[in-house]
Design a protein around this nucleic acid. Structure first.
Lengths: 142, 142
DNA sequence: CAGTCTAATGAAAATGATTCTCAATGTCAA
DNA sequence: TTGACATTGAGAATCATTTTCATTAGACTG
C-alpha cells in the first residue's frame, strides 16, 4: 500500500517525505470513510507542526495514486477510504444515527455491469448507497 | 406538483408567493439534476429582482415538501430533481463529458431491499451511480 | 563540501457554494 | 387600521477546501 504510494510519487518525480508518510500511515490505520479533517486531527496528535494544507494535499495525492478513493456522502464534506481492497463494497447509511454499514452483493454488481453495457458505458467505478433507519434506531424510537 | 407544494406551505403556516411560484415552476420545467445556481440563472431572466438567497430557500422548501429531492454527485455542488416521479431511477455518469443518463432496473431495486432487510434496515431512499465513459466519448477518444 | 535547483511545507489568505442576518416590505386577521 | 409575522433581497458570514507565497529541506552536481 505504502509502496504503491511511494512508487507513484517516484514516477511523478515527487518525494516521499516524513509528513506524507505519517499522513498515509494514519490514513491506512483507519477503517475507512475518513474525512480529511479527521485525518488532520489524528496526525496533529503525533506531529502538531503539520498543517491542514499538507493533509489535504497528501489525501489528494493518495487518491491520485489510486490507494485512496474519494467518496462524497450527502453531508458537507468528502471522505476517503482505502482503495485496492479486494472486495467491492457499498454502503447502508442510517439517517438517524449516521452509522454506516458496508455490504457487498455480487448479483447487484453484475446487474450493474449489464445495465451499463446496454447504454454503451464502460464503467470505471460505482457508488450504491441505501439510506434508511437501522434496527437499533428503530427500536430506540418507540 | 405545485398543489402539493402549496399544500405543504399552508400546512406549515407559510405563504405561496410570486417568487416561490416562479422558482417552483422553473424547477418543474427542467429535466432534473439542476443545481440551485442553474435555477437561479433561469429565474433571473424572468425576474431579475429575485435574489439567490430566495432561490436557495425555496429549493430547500421544495425538498422539504417532498416534491424535489436533493442529490449530490461528486462535483462541488448539490443538485435537485423532481421527486414523486412514478419511476425510481438511477444514474449513469460519464466522467469525461459529464453527461448523465437515467436508468431503472427493477431487479436491482428488489435486490437492494433484500440486502437492507438482511441488515435490519428500513430503506427510505437510495442512490446508485455508475461512473464511466460513455460510448460517444470512447469513440471520440481514439 | 558548497552550490544549485526544485519540491515541500505551513501560515494565512482566497475561493466558491451555501446559509444567515437584518432592515424593509408585504399580507393576513382581528 | 393595526399588530404580528412571514418574506424578501443584499450583503455579510460560514465552512470545507485550495491557493499563494515566503521559507525550508532534499537530492544531485561538480
Amino acid at each position: 500500500m505504502l509502496d504503491t504510494f511511494e512508487g507513484y510519487l517516484r514516477r511523478k518525480g515527487l518525494r516521499m517525505t516524513p509528513q506524507r508518510e505519517l499522513i498515509a500511515r494514519t490514513f491506512f490505520g483507519n477503517k475507512g470513510h475518513v474525512s480529511a479533517e479527521e485525518i488532520y486531527k489524528q496526525v496533529q496528535k503525533q506531529a502538531p507542526r503539520i498543517g491542514f494544507a499538507t493533509t489535504y494535499r497528501t489525501m489528494k495525492l493518495l487518491s491520485e495514486a489510486g490507494v485512496a478513493s474519494l467518496r462524497s456522502f450527502g453531508d458537507g464534506f468528502s471522505r476517503y477510504e482505502p482503495a485496492l481492497r479486494t472486495d467491492h463494497h457499498d454502503h447502508l447509511i442510517c439517517t438517524q444515527c449516521g452509522h454506516i454499514i458496508e455490504f457487498e452483493d455480487d448479483r447487484i454488481e453484475s446487474l450493474q455491469k449489464t445495465v451499463a453495457r446496454k447504454h454503451g458505458f464502460r464503467v470505471t467505478d460505482h457508488k450504491l448507497e441505501l439510506y434508511g433507519i437501522c434496527s437499533k434506531c428503530r427500536t430506540r424510537k418507540r
